[in-house]
């Protein structure tokens, strides 16, 4: 554990809790992509199956359980409790275009050919692109609520901080995993446009709206 990794995890946790808070407080999931939330739930489920097979630390297990619970809770709120507020007309990104390539790639570029390892690798690839339906939705509606913008910023920062963590681990532990690094870089690049809009608009107190 290093400071970048810790800040990354906390940023990730903050993002997930912010989203739940927003939906609960406004009693609405308007502007939130159910497809992105579904993809994240698939990501956590595929990756955290190792809760049953290996123990790393209490911190690690607790965070995994929180992420899993929160993502299933978000799906429950979006597709059941507040379903009438879900803006599915604007959530039209085809997620099979993300799932299928991620699955194929996880059979081609993977460290070890075991079911758990392929699922883990699939989750890494899918996470890298899971935000695309949400960004697509923001571009279609041309705007995002301020709290949604904070959510996206925290979620994007998490993987960017992980990149710093991997650089740090390379120097201190001589540790390098190209699968997570490349996927993490792709993931962070996808947020760049959004980061720019967030810094130039939201931080100056303006609502995030596209020109």
């Amino acid at each position: 554990m290093n400071i970048f990794r810790l800040c990354g995890d906390l940023s990730h946790l903050l993002a997930i809790l912010l989203l739940l808070f927003k939906i609960w407080k406004t009693r609405s999931c308007a502007g939130i992509s159910g497809k992105t939330q579904l993809l994240f739930t698939i990501v956590y489920t595929a990756r955290y199956l190792d809760l049953f097979t290996s123990f790393v630390s209490v911190y690690n297990s607790v965070m995994k359980i929180v992420f899993l619970t929160a993502s299933y809770g978000t799906l429950y709120l979006m597709f059941y409790k507040f379903k009438p507020t879900y803006d599915h007309n604007h959530d039209s990104f085809r997620i099979l275009y993300l799932i299928v390539p991620a699955l194929v790639l996880s059979f081609i570029i993977v460290h070890v050919y075991t079911v758990m390892e392929i699922l883990w690798t699939f989750s890494i690839y899918l996470e890298a692109v899971a935000i695309m339906p949400q960004l697509f939705m923001v571009s279609r509606t041309g705007e995002a609520e301020t709290i949604t913008s904070h959510y996206l910023f925290a979620l994007g920062s998490y993987r960017a901080l992980y990149i710093l963590n991997w650089i740090y681990r390379y120097y201190t532990e001589d540790f390098l995993d190209w699968i997570t690094i490349m996927a993490g870089i792709v993931q962070t690049i996808l947020y760049c446009d959004f980061f720019y809009l967030y810094i130039t608009k939201v931080l100056k107190g303006k609502r995030l709206s596209l020109p």
């Binding site: 995890d9 190792d50 630390s57 995994k64 883990w120 532990e173 997570t180």
Partner: peptide, 10 residues
């Protein structure tokens, strides 16, 4: 190098 170290990340 083994990727097992990555598994301690989230």
């Amino acid at each position: 190098k083994s990727n097992q170290l990555t598994k301690d990340e989230l």
